[in-house]
């Protein structure tokens, strides 16, 4: 028999916060995945909302490309407010 597909589980721990990846589980379909996630990942009120995504639908960047993807941001310190020298008398900026 075929193994149930794998689902990635994301939980919003509190209203106002992002959903965060917490782990994965197997289930026959999305609804059962949510029901299982309730039992596996929220036994102590850890969540107010659950997302499940079948793992095969997640596309990830490759660690080998991390350099070419993320290094270009490295030398752009002018994107940060601390880059700018302003006189002390300037308030509220």
């Amino acid at each position: 028999m075929n193994e149930w597909p794998l689902w990635e589980v994301f939980i919003r721990s509190k209203q106002g916060l992002d959903h965060k990846h917490v782990g994965s589980l197997h289930a026959a379909d999305a609804q059962m995945a949510i029901e299982n996630a309730r039992d596996v990942y929220t036994r102590r009120m850890e969540g107010v909302s659950i997302w499940v995504v079948e793992s095969k639908h997640i596309h990830a960047s490759s660690p080998d490309e991390a350099g070419s993807l993320f290094d270009p941001a490295n030398d752009k310190a002018y994107r940060h407010p601390t880059f700018y020298d302003l006189p002390d008398e300037v308030k509220y900026m």
């Binding site: 028999m1 075929n2 149930w4 289930a27 026959a28 379909d29 609804q31 059962m32």
Partner: peptide, 16 residues
């Protein structure tokens, strides 16, 4: 538990 796993798969197919 085999029948439960099979039943869940069959139900998922039907529901979806």
């Amino acid at each position: 538990g085999a029948w439960v796993r099979e039943a869940a798969s069959a139900f998922a197919e039907k529901r979806n």
